[in-house]
Structures are given as structure tokens and as C-alpha cells.
Design a protein around this nucleic acid. Structure first.
Length: 417
RNA sequence: GUGGGUGUAGCUCAGUUGGUAGAGCACUGGAUUGUGGCUCCAGUUGUCGAGGGUUCAAGCCCCUUCACUCACCCCA
């Protein structure tokens, strides 16, 4: 066996890439309509960026990052998510001076060292957006409307939007304490995993899939019933605006986030079509993040879409692959040389031309032209070159018509429109 | 990190109680000395994932290992 790729990192091959290109194109169109500009940041960043933003004690930072020392002994990490790098770029380039509101989107590979499974890979791709500078719930609703619109245009249904509020640094700790007390009283029925984590991350228990935990947390206090006035208001506004925009959603009071920076509004696009990975897109508000990374105290909200998961959902839509417009079938060495130059001339004029390089029989060349779905085939032998006239065959109908080699390009352009 | 499943031709997969490996598709050539699809005929292709063991004999049984895959965990 020769050298293989790295576990959990996949090649995206022709035949599959067209779906990716389609989804990327839809994202650009939709996000552009809503006033978002693309930003591209480097794949590696200083490790510290992720420790400070995602949270030291999260699984991502504790055990999933691709980190290494470069030749100057700096600790470098391949980005495990897109928000922190965009915040870093936003602050470093002082984008907040250009406008009070900054709306950005990005797409590209992310890296997490996890055991691969369906919908989860070590290199995976996200399309994400970030809106900075707006506190008002209108932006929350607009972001969700945009996400909804993207799924519509991408032709992917069987997803549903769930929203929740995680509160803020004022109200969440109080709720957290209450939840721990509630769980403590029911420790014996929780699964092993939850018994271990209920103090470290009690909200996670609410999201546990085990039957015992679901049962035990049936009547657990919900975060949305314990929000401070400010957060409660904000969440009510978000729902009001979503309703007025006719965006379907449901409130899932048990939804949690694996990254520490999220506050208040959080949301997920979920599906039951992906095995155990049910989130196709997710995001939320991160109001303290910019400031904690050394920037101005600006609020922010964003989301990321998992592209591999989107592709797995097999939307029918794809970019049309470009078939050859002309296949030149040459007979003999002299004709092949002539055809080679002719093909290059046509290609220079923007005509997708193709020929055989392996000295195959006419029959085999025709077969290949058919397989490649060429629109026309030009049959070229010594006779045709001497007379300057050749037969141009339209493959779909099988009709042949004579054509002067001199004006082949213009005739083809006419036929092809 | 933990558990389950699967590794046989380029692809999808058969392979009986252990007896020296097969089908379909694809590919190549021909039927049609210079014209594709449909049909028919013929042909090529394997370290049976790898290493070791049991046996007269292993694709099949045993051990080890690797890869892929699904799930736990976690998350997009």
C-alpha cells in the first residue's frame, strides 16, 4: 500500500465537489444579500487565542486541538472553529473603526482531533457568519432569517430551528447553582457520565441522551425560567421578531453549547437524517468575547454550518459540470498532430475541446466522446486535412454536416450559442 | 480515549462441513478495414488488508496488527 491520507481527513472528488460548489455559491449569494462580506483568515493561529475564547476546560481545548510548536517554539494550533480567528482579525485590523456594525462571513477547513464517524471528521468545513456591534434582538432574528433562507435556497428541508437562551454572566451562575442542587438530589438515577460531570457542566446533563437522565431531568429547572429581566426581555424580543418574519422555530430549553463564550440567544438547525450528529448548523450570541480578546466591548452573534453534514443530506442541487463541447477524433499520427493544434486554438477561444492522446481506434474515440458527453464530434483523417472539409457530428441527434476547418471556431460558436 | 461491525478484481459483492477464487458492472478488442449509445462474442485484472499459528491442505479456524466504518464521548 502506498501513502494514504490522514485519518479523518477526506478528499473531495469530482462528482462530489459540484455539490460543495453549489452550497458555497448559495451562501455567497444569500449572505451578500443580507450585507455580509467575506473574510479569510489563516488556518493556524496562536494556541492562546483558542484557549482564551473557547475556554480552557472545554473538550475542544483540552483534548481535540491540533497543536504544535513551530521552529521558534511558538505554540500554534490549526483552528478548531472560525469565530475566534475572525474576532482576532476584527480586533487586530480595527474593523470596528470602519462602521458601527460589522457583518462578516467565512468558509474553510477546521480541525479537531476526534474519532471520525458519520458527519464528524478531523478536517471538516464550516461556512460561518459573525455580526458585531448590535445588541438589539433584531440582529438575532435577522441572522436566523438568513440561516433559514440559506437552507431554503440550498434545497435542504427536513431541518428545524431550535432556539434557547443561556442567560448572561449575571443570571446564569445563579441558575447553575439551582440546577446542581436539583441534580444532587437525583444523583443515583443519572448515568455514569452525568454523575461525573454534573458539577463541572450541569447544563450538559439536560442534553444527555440516556433514558435515565431524561427521566430524572423531566422537571428540572429550565434556564429560560431563570433569566434576569434583561435577558428575558431580549429572548422575548427574538421570538417576537422571528414570528413577525414567519420563521418557524421551537424553543428547546435543554440546548447547551460546547464553547464557553456563548451567552443569551443560542440556536441549532437540527435534523434526524444524520445518524447521531443531529446539528447541521449552530450558533449564538457572544457578547463579551471581543472585549475579552482585547477589543472594544462590542456585542456579537454568529453561527456556523457544517458543510460535510449538509452534503450528507444529499440536496439534489449541484453545479452543472462542464461537458466538452467538441471532441476531435483524429485518425493517424499526422491527423493527431493537426488536431492537437486545432484543439488548442479552439480552447483559446473559450470552446471546451477534447481529443484522444492514446492513439485509440475511431470506435474507441467515439465511445470516449460519448462517455464524456461531448456535444459535437469532429472526425479528422488525412482526407479531411487535405480537403479542408470535415464532418461535424451532433451526438444527441447523430446528424452529421460538412464544415470547413477554416471557420470551425465561428461555426461552433454559432451552434453552441 | 471506550465499544461494535467490515476488509476478496478498478467498483458492488458471492464464496457451502477447510480441498489451490467467482459473478455483475467497468475496461480492451471484435461482429461493423473511418463513426458513440442498444445487442452479441471474446479477453485482461487478485500479495483474498498485513504478519504469525493450527493443518497433508486456510479466503474460511486461532492469535496479533492495520485500515475503514458505525456508535459512545463530544460537536458543525
Amino acid at each position: 500500500m502506498s501513502i494514504t491520507g490522514i485519518k479523518g481527513m477526506n478528499d473531495i472528488l469530482p462528482g462530489e465537489i459540484e455539490t460543495w460548489q453549489f452550497l458555497e455559491q448559495q451562501a455567497r449569494e444569500v449572505f451578500g444579500t443580507y450585507g455580509f462580506s467575506e473574510i479569510r483568515t489563516p488556518v493556524p493561529e496562536k494556541t492562546e487565542l483558542f484557549c482564551r475564547s473557547i475556554g480552557e476546560t472545554t473538550d475542544i481545548v483540552e483534548k481535540e486541538m491540533y497543536s504544535f510548536e513551530d521552529k521558534s517554539d511558538n505554540s500554534i494550533t490549526l483552528r478548531p472553529e472560525g469565530t475566534a480567528p475572525v474576532m482576532r482579525a476584527f480586533i487586530q485590523n480595527k474593523l470596528f473603526n470602519l462602521d458601527a456594525v460589522t457583518k462578516l462571513y467565512y468558509m474553510g477547513p477546521m480541525f479537531r482531533y476526534e474519532r471520525p464517524q458519520k458527519g464528524r471528521y478531523r478536517q471538516f468545513h464550516q461556512i460561518g457568519v459573525e455580526a458585531l456591534g448590535v445588541e438589539d434582538a433584531k440582529i438575532d432574528a435577522q441572522i436566523l432569517a438568513m440561516l433559514h433562507r440559506f437552507f431554503e435556497k440550498a434545497g435542504i428541508d427536513s431541518v428545524s430551528l431550535q432556539v434557547n437562551s443561556l442567560g448572561c454572566p449575571d443570571c446564569r451562575p445563579i441558575y447553575r447553582q439551582q440546577l446542581i442542587q436539583y441534580l444532587e438530589a437525583r444523583l443515583d438515577v443519572l448515568c455514569e457520565e452525568c454523575q461525573r460531570r454534573y458539577t463541572k457542566n450541569p447544563l450538559r446533563v439536560l442534553d444527555c441522551k440516556s433514558a435515565g437522565c431524561k427521566e430524572a431531568t423531566q422537571d428540572a429547572p429550565a434556564i429560560i425560567d431563570h433569566l434576569c429581566e434583561h435577558c428575558d426581555d431580549h429572548f422575548a424580543q427574538v421570538q417576537k421578531y422571528l414570528t413577525s418574519l414567519e420563521i418557524p422555530f421551537s424553543v428547546n430549553a435543554r440546548m447547551v453549547r460546547g464553547l464557553d463564550y456563548y451567552v443569551r440567544t443560542t440556536f441549532e438547525m437540527v435534523t434526524d437524517k444524520l445518524g447521531s450528529q443531529n446539528a447541521v448548523a449552530a450558533g449564538g450570541r457572544y457578547d463579551g468575547l471581543v472585549e475579552s480578546l482585547g477589543g472594544p466591548a462590542l456585542p456579537g452573534i454568529g453561527f456556523a454550518i457544517g458543510l460535510e453534514r449538509l452534503v450528507l443530506m444529499k440536496g439534489e442541487n449541484r453545479i452543472e459540470p462542464a461537458f466538452p463541447q467538441l471532441f476531435i477524433a483524429a485518425l493517424g499520427d499526422a491527423a493527431a498532430d493537426y488536431a492537437f493544434v486545432l484543439m488548442a486554438r479552439l480552447q483559446a477561444k473559450g470552446i471546451r475541446a477534447e481529443m484522444d492522446f492514446q492513439g485509440k481506434s475511431l470506435k474507441a474515440q467515439m465511445r470516449r466522446a460519448d462517455k464524456l458527453q461531448a456535444e459535437y464530434v469532429l472526425v479528422l483523417g488525412d482526407d479531411e486535412i487535405n480537403s479542408g472539409q470535415a464532418q461535424l457530428k451532433e451526438m444527441a441527434s447523430g446528424d452529421q454536416s460538412p464544415v470547413a476547418l477554416d471557420c470551425l471556431a465561428s461555426q461552433l460558436q454559432e451552434k453552441l450559442g
